[in-house]
Amino acid sequence: MEHYTMNLTLKVWRQKNNNEKGSFETYQVKGISSEMSFLEMIDVLNEQLIVEGKEPIAFDHDCREGICGMCSMHIDGRAHGPWAQTTTCQLHMRQYKDGDTIVIEPWRAAAFPVIKDLAVDRSSFDRIIQAGGYVSINTGNAQDANSLPIEKQKADDSFAAAACIGCGACVAACPNASAMLFVSAKVSHLALLPQGAPERKERALNMIAQMDKEGFGSCTNIGACEAECPKGISLDNIARLNREYIGAMFAGDK
């Protein structure tokens, strides 16, 4: 693969904190290698800003291998940028060419308030999990793992839903800022397994109730969440969540 360097114009959302208004600032970065990751390019800009005596851009990131779910940039209007099934930290600069302009914003959703610049508060997701995204089993209560055979297909489907990294790209991509894909991934992960069965109905009802309480919007079947999800979480999960929810609503024994 041919490597090259490029000069870029970046329009970055700057916001001092949640109380103050934000705006775009324009920066030039030079000599960016096509082998860099997108966040390494931001590192270069930040080093440059510090040397110039300016404040670096605050952004969330940690593992830089696409699994922790902490990075969260809206790049040129797309959650995690232009590559399919890729987090921002795994996007690489060979996507861009010399002279490009890139617009970088934080996740935008009422339930994800901006903390500073590109960093947002996603604790609403933790509270949704607290509402029921677990199996109520205390340490030490478990039976032998192989005493519970699970159909391979079901286990694989459950794993596919459990691959969600909780980054919030689904919310950021959705015009309604709905968290249905996130909630449905957790409900599906547990509903597909026998371990999740005893609390299945309450889980669906309580997690949806918490989602609404946090101020996430409703799902209108647009599908942007699935398109932008870095882990390829399928819309089928939302269909399953709707079935779980409706079933639970009308069940007499919940």
Binding site: Y134, T139, N141, A142, P149, K152, D156, L193, Q195
Partner: peptide, 20 residues
């Protein structure tokens, strides 16, 4: 015990066709 505990929590470990 760890494997037992994790399976009970719903950790989706890889399985064979027999379900184990």
């Amino acid at each position: 015990n760890i494997i037992d505990q994790c399976v009970a929590q719903g950790v989706p470990f890889a399985r064979e066709y027999g379900g184990l």
